[in-house]
Design a protein around this nucleic acid. Structure first.
Length: 431
RNA sequence: GGCCCCAUCGUCUAGCCUGGUCCAGGACGUCUGCUUCUCAGGCUGAAAACACCGGUUCUAUUCCGGUUGGGGCUACCA
């Protein structure tokens, strides 16, 4: 039976690198019909916080990484104490004050790593290891070894930063009379300067990505591609398909730099392919949070989502693009205003407003017809009026097609903005 | 510093195990062009890599050694 575990420490949020370690463990378990165990390593009483634990659990669920068994090391302190006493009784460990230290044997330890093959280390490089701290709590390596052995973990899949912990732990396995599991050390995720990914480099917590409007399926898809490849030049890979293809042997040895651009691209792909109704459900709470619970309900929001779907790379982009629809007044970009509205077009705007006002069933097609009529009446090129109108209605020079934009804005606001741009309420005049 | 790990386009990678089919394939990003009222998108196309030096071999990106470079560890943190 394949049994693997992910063992985060609740001394911080779930790190994106930790999420990938969890993901690889999870994929391996699923691909082998094994069990995925979540074990909380909260032996450091001072730094462990329950809010971090909640966040880790939340992020795991959000990513869809469900677990079969759950343990907390803080519930198991008696166990660690018993094994420490056993080693003391057998003379394999000794006391230094209240602490318990393990005597290091002098030998060459060979690790068989599923990704890197054999690694050997001379224990003479390693000093005696603390097993139990003076405060009575176990050290990481001691608790980790006892738990991995007792939980019958068949393969320890963890980050490369643990390679040098492995020989120390093998010595502990041997002292305790346990058979060591297999090991697989994953390459680390690096930042764009190829240094270890840290807060400095932007978002590192899974919850940050969630907050920024990334989809869990995109985050999972991106993470699995860091150090692993499904083959066949596939980029967009569903978790289920990846599980089918998964093999530890195919994991890379070299560190992988995190590329935010590619994550955004992937996220955009998932957004574009998502059913608009479902996407609207995801966006609804964001709109409600920003503008109040009354705004953006019903099919109206779905139409807006439909219009902007193709240009979003994160859910948060929707809010960026659509402020002109939800805000009572347009938020002008002064630069853009200078460029497109410095010439007085009040005659043209009013004419267009008159036409729009008369439309009974206001939609993109009707708006376009009205617009074309005005343009031909004035003998203008469509383009010369399209851009100023877009700026007047949305505050920006870029956006979706003007008539679709008018349709989602609605007749009333469109007409009002056209009328007030040049000769509206005090202060609205620009020159 | 010591010990350990690693090394294909700017980035993620395929290929390397089982040398020739690779003047190295895909994707992100960058740059062309087309589409269009703009931008995004979509569709085209282009530039872009086997770190270096030796060895083995008829043949090396693929195997071996070294050099260089990068990363990790070196806690009574995990």
């Amino acid at each position: 039976m394949i049994r693997v575990r992910f063992a985060p420490s609740p001394t911080g949020y779930l790190h994106i690198g930790g999420a990938r370690t969890a993901l690889f463990n999870w994929m391996y378990a699923k691909s082998q019909g094994g069990k995925f165990i979540l074990r909380i390593e909260d032996t450091d009483k001072a730094r462990s916080k329950s809010e971090y634990l909640d966040e880790i659990l939340d992020s795991m669920r959000w990513l869809g990484l469900d677990w079969d068994e759950f343990y907390k090391q803080s519930d198991r302190f008696d166990l660690y104490r018993q094994y420490a006493q056993k080693l003391l009784d057998e003379g394999r460990a000794y006391k230094d004050g209240e602490a318990v230290l393990l005597t290091m044997p002098q030998k060459i330890i060979k690790i068989y790593d599923l990704i890197r093959d054999e690694i050997s280390i001379d224990t003479r490089e390693i000093k005696d290891q603390v097993l139990m701290k003076s405060d009575g709590s176990p050290t990481y390596s001691f608790a980790c070894v006892i738990d991995d052995a007792l939980m019958e973990i068949s393969c320890v899949i963890r980050g490369e930063d643990h390679i040098s912990n492995t020989p120390k732990q093998i010595v502990i396995y041997e002292a305790l009379g346990f058979k060591p599991p297999k090991f697989a050390h994953l390459p680390l995720i690096l930042d764009d300067e190829r240094a270890r990914l840290s807060k400095r480099a932007g978002a590192v917590a899974v919850s940050d990505y969630r907050r920024q409007g990334f989809l869990p399926e995109a985050v999972v898809n991106y993470l699995m591609l860091l150090g692993w490849s499904p083959g066949n030049n596939q980029e967009k890979v569903a978790l289920a398909a990846a599980v089918k293809n998964f093999s530890i042997k195919k994991i890379n040895k070299a560190g992988a730099a995190f590329d935010m651009d590619k994550l955004k691209w992937l996220n955009g792909q998932y957004i574009k392919e998502m059913d608009t109704a479902r996407l609207t459900e995801l966006i609804k709470p964001l709109v409600a949070e920003k503008y109040g619970p009354q705004v953006g309900t019903g099919t109206q929001l779905q139409n807006i989502v439909h219009l902007f779907k193709g240009r979003m790379s994160t859910l948060a982009d929707f809010l960026e693009w659509t402020d002109f629809i939800f805000l009572p007044k347009v938020n002008f970009d002064e630069q853009v205003k200078m460029e497109h509205l410095s010439k007085n077009l009040s005659k043209e705007f009013n004419l267009l407003a008159d036409r729009l006002e008369k439309i009974a069933d206001f939609n993109a097609k009707a708006a376009e017809e009205a617009f074309r009529a005005v343009v031909s009446q004035l003998g203008l090129e469509a383009g010369t009026l399209v851009h100023p109108v877009r700026v007047a209605l949305t505050g920006r020079a870029v956006g979706p097609g003007l008539f679709d934009t008018m349709a989602v804005l609605g007749k009333q606001k469109a007409v009002e903005r056209l009328r007030t741009t040049f000769n509206g309420p005090a202060g609205a005049t620009s020159s």
